[in-house]
Each structure stands twice: as C-alpha cells, then as structure tokens.
C-alpha cells in the first residue's frame, strides 16, 4: 500500500513540477499578437494592386496565414513565392496564372497633354503617387509609383500608360552565370533552377 501511495505521490509531485515549468514557459515565452501575418506582409511587394483578390497586401497576408495559396501575387512573382515558401516551410509552387502574370517593374506615366484633370486616377491610386488638382493636368511621382496599374482603368480619356522601368548604366547588373550544365533533367533536387540550400 505504501509503495502505491509513494508512486502516486511521486507522480503528483512530478506533475506539479512539470506543470509549473510549462506555466512559466507560457508566461516567459509568450508571443504577442500574430507575428506570422506581419512576416508574410513584409514579404509581399506592397503594390496594393489587388490582383490576388484581396483589397491590399495585408488582407492577402492574413488570408495566407489562414491557409490561402501563396501563388496569387503576380507583382511579387516567383521570388516572393519562394520567400513565402521558405517562411511557411511549404513547397514553392508556380504563380497562379488566373491572377495575372509576372511583369517587369513598371511605372504609370500620364500623357499630360491629353489629361483632362478629372482626378479619377488620383482617387484610384492606392499610394497617393499621383499629383494634380481638378481640371489641372496630373502627373505620376515615378519614385512612389508601385506599378499596380489601378489608375489605368478609371481614366476616362485613356491617357495613362504603364511603362517598363528601363535598364540604364546606373541600375544595370551582371547576369547570374549559367552554372554547370545548363540543360538537364530535373531528376534530383539540386538540378532545379532554384537550388536547395545545404
């Protein structure tokens, strides 16, 4: 009988100790908020273009944290998908073509002599990158433009063009070398274009 009681007693003491440790750990390592959404949001390109089907990047970040696929962001392209895949520890999948295709970095440019000053593009711009007043000619602040092309559709006179940001001697960079044997079959992981890490 005593051994039984002793066993029970030891177990009770042990459970108290471990419970205490667990309780302390919960307080000590408590994580505020839902940082994964912030982390996802930080990886998204913040063009606020809505091509993912959400009104802005943050809503999409929230949707991803709730299990939506990570391949709905054409402005971010494959690089963003890869980064998200790394963050969430899932497989990187190709961009979903239903949401648009990855394009080069673009900026909106207003053909200023055609602009009638309707301010519709100003209202449409998610990042306030268009300057102008009613009945005055508008212009795009190229540095602020995210290239989301949300201003193109509302323009009643179609005077907004999306222009590729060209390569100049200042922003030019070397290509990545082709590496060993550029053409090969993807049998093993290291054969793939984005080589896996160590």
């Amino acid at each position: 009988m005593f051994t039984v009681l002793l066993a029970i007693g030891i177990l009770v003491v042990l459970s108290l100790i471990f419970g205490g440790i667990l309780g302390y750990a919960k307080v000590r390592f408590h994580v505020e908020g839902d940082p994964i959404v912030d982390q996802i949001d930080a990886l998204l390109p913040q063009t606020q273009c809505g091509q993912c089907g959400h009104p802005g990047c943050r809503p999409y970040a929230e949707a991803i944290s709730n299990g939506e696929a990570i391949n709905h962001c054409p402005p971010g392209g494959q690089a963003t998908i890869q980064a998200l895949a790394d963050l969430l520890d899932v497989e990187a999948i190709p961009l979903d073509g239903d949401h648009g295709t990855e394009t080069a970095q673009r900026v909106a440019v207003i053909r200023e002599d055609e602009c009638i000053g309707c301010t519709k593009c100003i209202q449409a711009c998610p990042v306030d990158a268009i300057l102008g007043a009613a009945k005055q000619m508008h212009t795009v602040i190229a540095d602020e433009c995210t290239g989301c092309d949300l201003c193109v559709e509302p323009c009643p006179v179609d005077c907004i063009d999306m222009v590729d940001v060209g390569i100049t001697a200042k922003n030019w960079s070397w290509d990545k070398p082709q590496g060993v044997a550029a053409q090969s079959l993807n049998i093993i992981a290291t054969d793939r274009s984005t080589e896996v890490s160590q």
């Binding site: 998204l44 913040q46 063009t47 990042v127 306030d128 960079s173 070397w174 990545k176």
Partner: peptide, 25 residues
C-alpha cells in the same frame, strides 16, 4: 558575386520602396 551583390542591393531598394508604399497606403 557581382550578381548577388546587385540582387541584395535591389532587394534592399525594393524593401525600402515597399515599406514606403505600405506607409502611404
């Protein structure tokens, strides 16, 4: 290395730009 350096610089610029866009949004 040159390619990677410019990728890092591009990524930094993109991060600054996206932060700005986010703030403005």
């Amino acid at each position: 290395y040159r390619h990677t350096k410019s990728s890092i610089r591009d990524a930094r610029e993109a991060a600054v730009k996206s932060d700005l866009a986010k703030q403005r949004f």
